[in-house]
Simulated scan of single mutants.
Amino acid sequence: MQLDVVSDTVCPWCYIGKKRLDQALVMHGGEGITLAWRPFQLDASIPAEGVDRKAYMEKKFGAERAKEVGNTIREFGEAVGIDFRFDRIERSPNTLDSHRLIRWAGTAGCQNEMVDILFRRYFEDGEDIGLHEVLLEAASEAGMDVDIVRDLLSKDADKELIRQEDALARQMGIQGVPSFVINSQWVMVGAQEPEMLVRMFNKLLAKEAEATAAQ
């Protein structure tokens, strides 16, 4: 079973969704499931240097609503072991380069770990994941070849491919993240509870086994 998770690196619900997915994979065992992370930019219009996060969030939600949303997210985060520290985040970055890094991490065999690293660095450590130096530190933490990543980041490598994958997700009807795409056919939207994901895994894997046996 191919499981593609469509997410953005600055989406707090995607971080929560990942923690729940990790729990589901432990509960299930993960056998027969191939996992990949796919890009989605919630706001591709943010400039490469990023924008002031407080002003950005207040413009998007309003000051009071932004505070309420943050409090709600913190509560859900605590339940899965995330210490959201929105007070540490100064910049809302453009996430294109972080998605490039996640793609390269897939080739290096550490994609799932890289997603975790970027979420933690942004949401808990308050680091600007739009900065190349931060992305290089993340690559080093994941055990990637930093010199290769530095060279790729300095060029336009895979930028257009990331944009195309983002566009494909939207063509599939995906408007919110996280979204779980199973075998390029079925889509579940939202940070699903682990038990729900396990039931989905079992149901679809059983169908695959039946189809294989019938051949």
Rank of each mutant, 00 (worst) to 15 (best):
M1T: 11
Q2I: 07
L3S: 04
V5H: 01
V6M: 03
D8T: 09
V10S: 04
C11G: 05
C11P: 03
I16K: 04
K18Y: 06
K18F: 01
K19R: 15
L21D: 01
V26T: 09
E31W: 00
E31R: 12
G32P: 02
L35H: 08
Q41C: 09
L42M: 15
D43N: 14
S45E: 06
A48M: 10
V51Q: 03
V51S: 00
D52W: 00
D52G: 01
K54C: 05
A55T: 05
Y56F: 14
E58M: 01
K59C: 08
G62C: 06
A66Y: 06
K67R: 13
E68N: 12
E68I: 13
V69Q: 02
N71Y: 07
I73T: 13
R74E: 07
G81E: 12
D83H: 12
R85I: 07
R85M: 09
F86R: 02
D87L: 02
R88N: 03
I89T: 05
I89K: 01
R91H: 06
R91Q: 09
R91A: 05
T95N: 03
D97N: 15
D97Q: 15
H99G: 14
I102A: 12
I102G: 11
W104S: 04
A105S: 10
G109E: 09
C110R: 08
Q111N: 11
Q111T: 10
N112Y: 07
E113P: 01
M114L: 12
M114G: 00
V115F: 04
R121N: 06
F123K: 00
G126V: 03
E127M: 10
E127N: 08
E137T: 13
A138Q: 01
E141C: 13
M144F: 08
D147I: 07
D151M: 10
L153G: 01
K155G: 14
K155M: 11
A157G: 06
D158H: 10
D158Q: 07
E160H: 11
L161W: 10
I162N: 03
I162H: 02
A167P: 04
A167V: 06
L168G: 10
A169Q: 05
Q171W: 02
I174C: 10
Q175V: 09
G176W: 00
S179I: 11
I182C: 02
I182L: 09
N183G: 07
Q185R: 15
Q185K: 12
W186Y: 15
Q192D: 05
L197A: 05
M200N: 07
N202R: 15
A211Q: 14
A213E: 13
A214L: 13
Q215M: 12
